[in-house]
Amino acid sequence: MRILALNFERGWRGGERQTLYNTQGLIAAGITTHLLCRKGQPLEAAAKKAGITVHAFASKMAVLGFLIKHGAQYNILHAQTSQILTYCVVTKWFHGAAVVFTRRINKPQSGLLTQLKYKYTNKLVAISSAIKQTLASFTKRCDIEVISDVVVPKPADKERISTLRNQQYLTGKTIIGTTAAFTAEKDPFTMLNAVEILRSLEPNFVFLHFGSGPMLAKVETAAKAKGLEQHYRFMGFENDVEAIIPLFDLFVISSKQEGLGSSVLDAFAHKVPVVATNAGGLAALVNKERGISCAVGDAAALAAAMQHMLHHPEQAKLLANNAYEYVHEEHSLQSITQKYLTLFNSTVATATV
């Protein structure tokens, strides 16, 4: 079997990391797997560093040309984003390969063309039950598989953590943190309001927010207006941020839309207790056995949950240990790779153009 994984996004976020992991897992299982990505982006560099055969292009037309000329070399085209799925489907008459799409975003969709695109996709995969439900409602398909994300725990970067402790004067303080983009989906203003409430209850903490995005300036202005400069610190974007998650005593996420919550899985893998909203895939991920879940947009509930975790360290430790066991059993590279292999084999066996 020959597989081409496709991800044409810019930058480096959870989807790009998962594309790399999926490709590495298949190669490790003995499956010939190549990667098509955008030229000059972090995914190209990471894949080449890992020894993966990469087809990198700067334009959409170049991608279409490659699929028309060379797509037939592959049994499976595994599209990792909605945009690249379009290219796989519109060139399907030329390449004849089976098209599989993994959807990681839990947003409602509309439009006849999008429905047609899904109609001519051989297999749909959702990374959470929440996304499956959304996809099924739109496509009316009952054959959608749920295959979650891979977690490859990175060792704690002790040198970076020590540097951060010194630079931010964190000694003797409780450290609460998040790794989230400043976008509407991540709802940073609810997080900011929760931290403001917590400050009135627990003054001896620091909240570190790693991430960037279009809403950053507005949130910074709001934090200054609330007088939160000493408690809410904007840390910017960090490469391999999962390696510094062990710095946190508590991980918090305030999303109002979430396909799964890969940053939560990273916290699980490092035994860091988690407080999260119940948006999308987070509802199932952060259940009562693995963390504390709060309603979307409820800053007071997030603040109360954070305070509860800080005041009940034994319960926080138990939840973190349960989450650690869960992520190692259900989200290992080997486990997820095997699920994809089973899916790909059945898809090839039944595929029609």
Rank of each mutant, 00 (worst) to 15 (best):
T350V: 14
A305Y: 00
A349N: 05
I292W: 00
T350W: 04
K317V: 02
K256D: 06
L36H: 02
K339Q: 15
L318P: 01
I244S: 08
Q307P: 00
V90I: 15
I197G: 11
E196M: 11
Y169W: 04
E242S: 11
L6V: 14
L77Y: 04
L282F: 06
E314T: 12
A97L: 07
Q257A: 13
T121Y: 03
A136Y: 00
A316S: 11
E258L: 11
Y169I: 07
T86G: 07
T178W: 00
N106R: 05
G11K: 02
H34Y: 07
L247F: 08
S335K: 15
L135P: 14
I68G: 07
A72W: 06
S148V: 07
G297K: 03
G14S: 05
A320I: 01
T114K: 10
S212L: 06
P273A: 08
S254G: 00
K339E: 13
T32W: 10
G172T: 06
M191H: 04
N239R: 05
V195W: 09
K49P: 05
M306N: 02
G111I: 06
I52T: 15
E202S: 11
L265R: 01
E44V: 07
M235T: 07
V146G: 01
A47H: 09
L310R: 03
D240H: 12
H308Y: 11
L113G: 09
Q41M: 15
H312S: 08
L116D: 03
N204Y: 00
A72M: 03
A283E: 01
L318D: 00
R141K: 14
P108E: 06
I3S: 09
E330Y: 13
D298G: 12
I131A: 14
L216C: 06
F94E: 00
F234S: 04
E145N: 00
T91F: 08
I144T: 00
K69E: 04
N122I: 10
I27H: 07
A243F: 00
N287H: 10
H308C: 03
G177M: 07
S263L: 10
F251E: 02
W93S: 13
D298A: 15
A304F: 02
Q167F: 04
I197H: 13
E325P: 00
T174G: 01
L4S: 13
L265D: 02
N322F: 08
K218P: 02
V152K: 04
A351C: 12
K317I: 03
F207H: 01
T23P: 01
A323E: 01
L36G: 12
K48E: 15
C37R: 02
L67V: 09
E325K: 14
R141L: 14
T178E: 01
F182P: 06
F248W: 04
R141D: 10
N287S: 12
A28E: 14
H270T: 05
H270N: 08
A279S: 00
Q80D: 08
A45Y: 09
E242D: 11
A222H: 00
K48V: 15
E159A: 15
Y74F: 15
K256L: 10
P313E: 04
Q315G: 03
V252Q: 01
V296Y: 07
A269M: 10
P214T: 07
Y21F: 13
S129T: 14
M306I: 01
A28H: 09
K158I: 13
F57Y: 01
L135K: 05
I3H: 08
R199G: 12
T121M: 07
A217F: 05
V89H: 03
A98G: 12
E145A: 14
